[in-house]
């Protein structure tokens, strides 16, 4: 009797254990030793008249361990974050907050989100130009222990691209400075082409357009990645079929079989405006490697036969 009573209870134990196990399994031990931040928005672009003011709400979420974080703004250059010790942030960019300022550490607990209100209010006298800055949130490493170790710190950044202008009429200008396509390619590919542009205007812009390949065999249109080109920056155009994730890789890298004459046309506007750039290059595809091998083989055969005839005559 006791046995059957025990079994009546025992059969429910897995039903009880399973959800409890699931509940505790959700608490991953990794999250207790993980630095994990997320930010929204990840990019802010502002065009503003001197004397005007705007605010933007940022949300910083801590998805990892509770940590101490410091916010600051640094200069953003074509190579990335510029850690210039002489850099002084413009006094018209700041946080609107009673409890957080740039450079003042704050605690952000695991799973919590903190909002920051960034205010941008350039004075009437501000120089009209682009200001490239980046809002950075940096974690403080955990206190060291008594072992040899590397402590980990993390910074998450959100670029600020600010254009101050009284009129809204911006000097946008881009030149195509490189358009490298081999005049002759092998028919068995790949086709590699590099197209680089230089921003010679006074404000940042994005190329919006396509690169089109036309020929006897094959035709394709590829969208140009609308990556930002800062004023004074030169960079390669990239497309969906650039060879790798490296932004400096060739613009076009397509394997395939080619034959005959081709044209490669780059065609884009600056942002959604009316300034258009277009350039076309021609090239030819021939199976020259195969022809070369065949030529060598034929030559070899001819030479061998000629020598055999001479030997047989003698």
């Amino acid at each position: 009797m006791k046995y059957f009573a025990f079994m009546r209870v025992f059969k429910w134990i897995p039903v009880l254990i399973l959800p409890v196990w699931i509940f505790f399994a959700k608490i991953s031990p990794a999250s207790a030793q993980t630095l994990s931040l997320s930010i929204s928005p990840p990019l802010l672009e502002v065009m503003i008249k001197p004397g005007k003011s705007i605010t933007q709400v940022y949300k910083l979420t801590n998805n990892g361990e509770t940590t101490i974080i410091t916010a600051r703004i640094a200069e953003l250059g074509v190579k990335g974050i510029e850690e210039d010790p002489t850099f002084q942030l413009e006094n018209w960019i700041g946080l609107v907050s009673s409890d957080t300022t740039f450079g003042k550490p704050f605690l952000l607990e695991r799973g919590k989100t903190k909002e920051f209100i960034l205010k941008i209010n350039p004075p009437e006298s501000v120089e009209e130009k682009d200001y490239y800055r980046v809002l950075l949130f940096t974690t403080k490493p955990n206190p060291p222990s008594d072992n040899s170790q590397s402590q980990i710190a993390q910074t998450l950044g959100s670029p600020l691209l600010i254009t101050t202008t009284k009129t809204g009429l911006l000097n946008k200008n881009v030149e195509i400075v490189t358009f490298d396509v081999p005049k002759i390619i092998d028919s068995f590919g790949p086709l590699q082409a590099t197209i680089a542009v230089s921003n010679t205007g006074s404000t940042y812009t994005r190329p919006v357009g396509t690169i089109t390949l036309k020929g006897l065999i094959g035709r394709g249109t590829f969208e140009i990645s609308p990556r930002i080109i800062m004023a004074g920056q030169k960079r390669n155009l990239t497309t969906e079929i650039s060879s790798s994730n490296d932004p400096n890789s060739p613009t076009i890298d397509i394997s395939g079989i080619y034959f005959g004459p081709y044209t490669l046309t780059v065609d884009f506007t600056l942002d959604q405006g009316t300034i258009t750039l277009s350039q076309t290059k021609k090239f030819y595809a021939l199976p020259w490697k195969l022809l070369l091998v065949l030529f060598v083989i034929i030559l070899f055969v001819v030479v061998v036969r000629t020598r055999r005839r001479k030997v047989s005559k003698k």
Binding site: A30, Q33, T34, L35, S36, L37, S38, I39, S40, P42, T61, N63, G64, E65, T67, P141, N142, S145, Q149, S150, Q151, I152, Q154, L156, S158
Partner: peptide, 10 residues
């Protein structure tokens, strides 16, 4: 959203 994680933290 843009998020970045590093684990472990030491």
């Amino acid at each position: 959203l843009f998020g970045f994680s590093v684990a472990p933290s030491v």
